[in-house]
Amino acid sequence: MTGKIIKGIAGFYYVQVESGVYECKAKGAFRKEKIKPLVGDDVEIDVISEEEMTGNVINILPRKSELIRPAVANVDQALLIFATKSPEPNLNLLDRFLCMMEEQDLPIIICFNKDDLADEGFQQQMRDTYEPAGYRVIFTSAKEQAGIDAIKDILKGKTSTVAGPSGVGKSSIVNILTEGQVMETGEVSEKIGRGKHTTRHSELLYLGDDTYIMDTPGFSSLFVPKVDPVDLYRLFPEFIEPAENCRFTGCAHHKEPDCGVKAAVESGEIAASRYENYLQIYSEMVEQQNNKYR
């Protein structure tokens, strides 16, 4: 029998199959081979008890991807949720998260929730900022349940990680997306220990139709990419083509003359906020690198 690991805790792996969720242990051979099953892994299981829905994970099928933050396998995309207002969108934090996902080569959709509170022109401003980088930008209102169908279409048939800072309505959107499924499978929720008083671990929520989401805990504003500072621009996709016009090889796109990236900022091809955030992250990376060798 094959299924997907939706949660792992204290040596137990909870595997979603068509008929429900099996509580499984991993066979000892995995430990010997230093292979650890991950949430999101597609696995084969041997059933021990149909009645108690228990089994053993006997094989991990090949992974198509593996994220480090959060530790999860086979994720297809990231849905990043910020608010239009209350709280005001922190675009520096947004750009750091985009860098983190770019570093892991994961497609990203940006969702601005609380669209009912947005100032006139906000939608166009955000589209002008992020669509040139190749990101899809959508707008929702969990309060009015507007734009939820668009999210469902984006998620359908995929495994997605959903992330965002506190207060943006991420939990409200996740609750809307999962409500019907949780109601239908209350015993499953009880079996895997979900609830408001439960310590949250990495966990996939099954929405049906081979669709899973991972509600990721908040992420840090202190994130700095692991790449060499000179390669940071590659995590800003809209910088890559203009960078080919730089006069100097290894241009940091900061103080150098005849810089293609700076020219693209001046012409409006690259949003000023994206460039300012690039410079801040770049400076932090250089400082971190310098401190390392002191």
Rank of each mutant, 00 (worst) to 15 (best):
I5Y: 04
I6E: 08
I6S: 03
A10V: 05
G11Q: 11
Y13F: 15
Y14L: 03
V15A: 03
Q16F: 03
E18P: 02
S19I: 11
Y22P: 01
C24H: 12
C24P: 14
K25E: 15
K25A: 12
K27R: 15
F30V: 12
K32Q: 14
K34Q: 15
P37C: 00
L38P: 02
D41K: 08
D41N: 06
E44L: 01
I45L: 07
D46E: 14
E52L: 08
E52G: 00
I60T: 08
L61V: 04
E66K: 09
A71M: 08
A73Y: 12
A78W: 12
F82D: 01
A83S: 05
K85C: 00
S86G: 00
L98M: 14
M100K: 14
E103D: 13
I108V: 15
I109F: 04
I110D: 08
I110K: 03
C111M: 12
N113R: 09
K114H: 09
K114F: 04
E120M: 01
G121T: 08
G121F: 04
G121M: 05
F122R: 04
Q124F: 01
D128P: 03
Y130T: 11
G134Y: 10
V137C: 02
I138K: 08
T140Q: 06
S141V: 08
K143A: 09
E144I: 07
G147L: 05
I148H: 07
D149A: 05
D149W: 00
I154Q: 13
L155C: 07
T159N: 04
T159Y: 00
S160M: 06
V162Q: 06
A163E: 06
P165Q: 13
G169N: 08
T178Y: 01
V188A: 05
V188M: 12
S189T: 15
G195E: 11
R200K: 11
L204F: 10
L205H: 14
L205T: 13
L207P: 05
L207E: 10
T211W: 07
Y212M: 03
D215W: 11
V224N: 05
P225Q: 09
V227Q: 07
D228I: 11
P229H: 07
L232H: 13
R234P: 00
F236I: 04
P237G: 03
P237R: 04
I240W: 05
I240H: 03
E241I: 03
E244F: 02
F248D: 13
T249N: 10
A252P: 02
S267C: 08
G268L: 07
A271W: 13
R274D: 12
Y275H: 08
Q280M: 09
Y282V: 01
Q288N: 06
Q288M: 04
N290K: 14
Y293M: 13
Y293P: 00
Y293E: 15
R294F: 12
